[in-house]
Nucleic acid binder design. Structure first.
Length: 567
DNA sequence: GCCGTTTTCGGCCCGACTGTTTTCAGTCG
């Protein structure tokens, strides 16, 4: 029995129970059991007794035993007989929960999206107690929108929307402080919507000005402290604004940064100290409300170190506080080892890029323009590469406190060969190998290509190892575990490409790399000087995988890197 | 359904907004 199947089954049971109108705590018990299983790193065989896990007891334990023994769950099968299948997707409609769906089924016999739509058109819905004309209109609208609305937005899209909103907020008088919150602040690679916290003592005026300044397509909710709108900025995107008093800003920011699981853990912790956390402050045992001037103070109030937003995810971060000081941070970064200049497809010249990197306070860098195969990117022939190499060596003489590594981002060709021969590669300081073509090849062939690069002792790093674009394409689907095993065997670095388009490797693979002891380089792959800034995003993405400073090669001094790549 | 070094029963994170009511249930994050 596959662990994933058990997790899905428990979640499915929760969904059916929700529609059946079961006790909400019972429903959440099944969700918690699924989560307990998911968060446990061990495989099913390695877990001796599942009921020993916190959150799994007699009832959920029996479901799991049933699944292992028979491959099926009698609990789920019974639920499926009682609850029509067509009701399940209705839970995804905004504003629809188990209770409303159950009522529609019981009172009107509605058992599918089609039946629901017809009932709206026949004006049957508004006759039900608890429903009215507005509910009917809303359901009909949500049913129509359901197909067309985009799901989650990739970070490279939300990034621009965030900047746009920040500009608007910065120009509104009466706002003392504001910040983006939510999954974007936690550097999740995709977000369902955007959240902003606004501190003001005049919420009414600020709200009016804000709504006037935004390209609002639809107002979802508009209360005294909370405004939810759909805004048309490139795509349609939902944005929540919370307006709070200035002294409440930090607790509100923490609350709406989440994650939900992180907040639950924090509230439980507060409760054990006879305190109560809400977005407005921390209620003390004597009833007074404490507020804070920084999130660090907020955590310190509970005797905890500051927990960066990037690691506030499944709640387990609260159990890993002693690891926080070793997490890689932006201040630890000493180098950027993947970037392009006007020699290939970059926007800035070699000296311009060098100056830009130096001004970031790093101590070394690598210039890695594309290789000849990539004609669309003006890839360098061996002649041009060696000419650039000479120029870099000359430029290096200018700096006593800074080193420029002469490198290349060399293509691994579709036929599995490398774009430069060893004689050329041997003259370089840092060699990156990348796949930019023939993504559709079968996995075996892709892996063969990667293996060629791995086996070449002159190759130092594999860049953007899966070729994915966040929210847009999956890449060339390598067997990442195998890739990492090879990297370990052949002493290669794997890249965390910090571009928000890529964030490649993804978090789960970075965790795997660290576990296997494969060093990671966080690189910007900058094609222009301003793109060097994405290092900050890359570092936060690395934090999500709990990468330690020592595992990240571009926190190392140059000598240690040289020793590792044997150059 | 799960949990317990104040508990084997009585809680389970907490508050806002909407649409329906005429004081509140349902949903959401």
């Amino acid at each position: 029995m596959n662990k994933k199947i058990i997790i899905r089954t428990l979640e499915k049971i929760a969904v059916y129970m929700e529609i059946k109108g079961e006790n909400p705590f019972k429903v959440s018990a099944f969700r918690k059991a699924a989560q307990a299983l998911e968060l446990d790193q061990r495989s099913l065989d390695e877990i001796e007794n599942v009921t020993k896990l916190k959150g799994i007891g007699k009832g959920t334990g029996e479901v799991i035993a049933d699944l292992i023994a028979t491959g099926k769950s009698s609990v789920l099968e019974e639920l499926q007989e009682e609850v029509p299948k067509g009701l399940i997707p209705l839970l995804k409609l905004p504003g629809m929960g188990g209770k409303k769906i159950a009522k529609l089924y019981k009172e009107l016999g509605i058992d599918s999206a089609e039946a629901l739509k017809q009932a709206c058109l026949d004006h049957e819905i508004q006759k039900l107690p608890g429903f009215g004309p507005k509910s009917e209109d809303k359901i009909l609208k949500e049913l129509t929108d359901f197909e067309s609305k985009p799901g989650r937005h990739p970070i490279w899209k939300t990034e621009e929307a965030v900047k746009f909103v920040e500009e608007i907020l910065g120009a509104i008088e009466g706002i003392s402080e504001f910040s983006v919150a939510g999954s974007y602040r936690r550097t999740k690679e995709t977000s369902k919507d955007l959240d902003f916290i606004i501190a003001t003592s005049d919420p009414k005026t600020v709200k009016e000005k804000l709504l006037a300044a935004l390209p609002v397509q639809e107002t979802i909710a508009s209360g005294d402290t909370k405004v939810s709108v759909t805004v048309e900025f490139q795509d349609m995107i939902d944005i929540d604004f919370r307006l709070v008093a200035p002294e409440e800003f930090i607790t509100a920011l923490h609350h709406f940064t989440g994650s939900k699981d992180h907040n639950v853990r924090m509230r439980q912790l507060a409760k054990s100290q006879n305190k109560k956390i809400s977005e407005y402050g921390v209620e003390q045992p004597d009833g007074s409300i404490a507020t804070f001037t920084s999130e660090a103070d907020f955590y310190a109030h509970f005797g905890m170190p500051f927990i960066p937003p990037s690691v506030r995810e499944d709640g387990r971060e609260i159990d890993r506080l002693e690891e926080l000081p070793n997490l890689v941070a932006l201040e630890d970064i000493t180098a950027d080892m993947h970037m392009h200049t006007t020699w290939s497809d970059g926007a800035h010249s070699l000296p311009e890029m060098v100056e830009a990197v130096r001004s970031k306070g790093y101590s070394y860098m690598a210039i890695t323009d594309h290789s000849q195969y990539l004609k669309v990117a003006n890839g360098l022939t061996p002649e041009r590469l060696l000419q650039q190499n000479a120029e870099i060596r000359e430029l290096n003489k200018k700096y006593s406190d800074f080193d420029i590594l002469s490198g290349t981002e060399m293509d691994i060709l579709p036929d599995g060969s490398l774009d430069f021969d060893d004689e050329v590669l041997g003259q370089l300081d840092f060699v990156i190998a990348s796949i930019h073509s023939s993504f559709q090849q079968p996995r075996d062939q892709i892996m063969e290509r990667i293996l060629t690069a791995m086996k070449n002792p002159l190759v130092d790093m594999i860049a953007h190892p899966t070729g994915r674009i966040v929210g847009q394409r999956d890449g060339y689907d390598p067997d990442v575990e195998q890739l990492l095993d090879w990297a370990k065997e052949y002493g290669k670095i794997v890249e965390l490409n910090a571009s928000p388009y890529r964030l490649d490797l993804a978090v789960e693979y970075l965790e795997m790399a660290q576990e296997k002891g494969v060093p990671v380089a966080i690189n910007t792959d900058a094609h222009a000087a301003e793109q060097l800034e994405v290092m900050a995003i890359g570092v936060k993405h690395a934090q999500k995988a709990w990468l330690k400073k020592d595992n990240v090669v571009n926190t190392w001094p140059l000598e240690r890197l040289r020793a590792f790549i044997k150059k």
